[in-house]
Design a protein around this nucleic acid. Structure first.
Lengths: 333, 333
DNA sequence: AACAATTCTGTTACCGATAACATCAACGAA
DNA sequence: TTCGTTGATGTTATCGGTAACAGAATTGTT
């Protein structure tokens, strides 16, 4: 029951120097196959795990990545929690530590890079002060690299499904926010409607189920049967669902509902929501991967520590339509 | 725009040796006030932040705490997410890194200690193999230190409130699980009922809203008006709420509902749930604090790395009854 | 065969902090 | 005065890795 094995232990067992072992790990092409085999054997035998702190110290880095979650403090959105798991998973596998912070604590310790989620227009003022590689989670108009789902494609999927399912009227319930992701979703809806020769109709709300629910109830007489509500979030969709149920509307026969996000809320609803599901966990992993690339690629840094590049990275994950109980054809899936 | 200041920088500026600076931080009583002032001034001037990795390496520790979340992988409970934020907050302030892992990855790297949440009876087999200080999140019968809410007191609060509000029948909807926390909650309910001379009635379900909803609908004729359902989770409570709504029961006049947890789900419900709210974030912070105590107290370690103590630590946070719209007297709060 | 070029492997120094030890000054007791 | 004691500060070695350099062995060239 000895303690954790070190480079030195491996080196002794393999009868080589520390440096050779280090090279086997970091520059294997510089070591002969013969020695490599010896070293691999020793590593396996001792179950060698490189020491995180020593690596960081030697490389003059922190090996800490900060995930900044910008949100009101009281509740944590399951969306962000899932994202976090994705980020954590990737970083764990690459000997990086994850530090979860809110804006308030963001500046406190040093780190090698940032992943920022939930950024609004007003946040970019301080975000640009960060002098470390940064990846945003969510599309933006500020030339920052980002990972997001393909929002436009998402509402295309939803709107197309509504059309396919034979709903005559298709209304978009958007989020009242001047943010890039919302514009993209609205464009996806508008484009699909126009191509199909349909009349688009958009209403916007704060992102709370109560707002969409109230709207449904107060404007109930305006909604004809055979209407589908394409929503920009599962929250709004839940509100729509409740509103329709309250007015004794028939879901999904007379009224269809399609949400957006597919994290937790869609499953909580009853009947369960048809929704545009984002692969949030994968997106989290990818954000981390991209960030590590930026950190390690050794791109030339300007004096404000931003790499000099001509193009930014934009990774858009394709969302997926999950058909459940709030649209027709549920049985066909 | 120099890089991060080190001990050495501070030492030079203050005209002392590194060791003196280190001592000012770790053993201030060994340094004269005069020098201390000089050092403090230099630290402030350079905005000195100790280097995490160097600290870890010198102390032969990892300064990594693993938070093991035992749960099905697909969705992350908001409950655990909130807990995580609490843990993260405390650790960030104490120069410890948090690593979020699932059971599968739990063994992979080294760490200084574990916080485990969601542990079931069957998990204790491998938990006891962990040779590092451990804190469980959630009461248990295995002599592990833990942090939890006072479950018994929670159902006491709920049951008392139901009595106070004048509900004649009070039924407990429990979770079908042979776990300590559930027993405690049931005891809280039973004890309060008996003291009040009431007839207790307990039904148990898997922790899914559909199960409690179905039960309500299928047994609807058995429930007299003026009944309150005290539930062991907000999930079950949401199911009860939907079931009653589906049967056109009147909430809260004829039927009261009280949930348990107070994280996210209670706010999602409509009408919003009266619930027993746990201070999950504080509980997370406290878990981290306790764990660091165990790690640093330097308790004598037996050869399996468990400190030799005669008593275990049990920290029970008092939950709080949040009155909302599923019980009477909502307006009185 | 002699020497340069090319591999390959080992040695040294260092990253930033800390424990253990060494040094030095001030002071009191004999 | 001299020596031991105490308290404050500096010096050295170390944690586990890695870059940079040094040295040894192999190969190629004329």
């Amino acid at each position: 029951m000895s303690s954790i094995a070190t480079l030195n232990d491996v080196a002794k067992l393999a009868n080589v120097s520390k440096m050779t072992v280090s090279r086997v790990i970091n520059h294997p092409e510089q070591v002969t196959d013969e020695l490599k085999q010896l070293v691999f054997k020793a590593m396996k035998e001792l179950n060698y795990q490189p020491n995180f702190a020593a690596k960081a110290l030697a490389a003059n880095t922190t090996r800490i990545i900060k995930l900044i979650i910008l949100e009101k403090v009281d509740t944590v959105e399951p969306y962000y929690a899932t994202l976090l798991m994705g980020v954590a998973q990737f970083l764990n596998g690459h000997q990086y530590a994850l530090q979860v912070v809110t804006q308030k604590n963001a500046g406190i310790g040093d780190c090698d890079g940032y992943i920022i989620t939930g950024a609004r227009q007003s946040d970019f003022e301080w975000i640009q002060e960060l002098n470390r590689p940064t990846i945003l989670f969510g599309e933006n108009r500020h030339n920052y690299d980002f990972v997001d789902s393909d929002n436009k494609y998402g509402t295309f999927l939803a709107t197309s499904a509504a059309i396919t399912d034979g709903y005559e009227h298709i209304i978009y319930f958007g989020i009242e926010l001047k943010e890039s992701f919302e514009y993209s979703r609205e464009r996806g809806y508008m484009g699909t409607m126009q191509k199909a020769g349909r009349d688009p109709q958009i209403v916007r709300f704060g992102n709370h189920s109560s707002e969409s629910q109230n709207y449904i109830q107060e404007h109930w007489q305006e909604f004809e049967k055979n209407t589908c509500f394409v929503c920009s979030s599962d929250r709004l969709a839940i509100g729509v669902e409740r509103g329709i149920q309250h007015m004794n509307g028939n879901i999904p026969e007379d009224f269809g509902i399609i949400g957006f996000d597919g994290v937790f809320l869609d499953q909580i609803a009853e009947p369960k929501l048809t929704t545009v599901k984002q692969p949030v966990m994968d997106m989290g992993s990818k954000s981390a991967e991209l960030l590590l690339q930026k950190i390690n690629w050794g791109l030339p840094l300007t004096e404000d520590h931003q790499p000099t590049r001509t193009h930014r990275m934009e990774i858009a994950f394709s969302p997926e339509l999950i058909r459940r109980q709030t649209t027709r054809n549920y049985h066909l899936t």
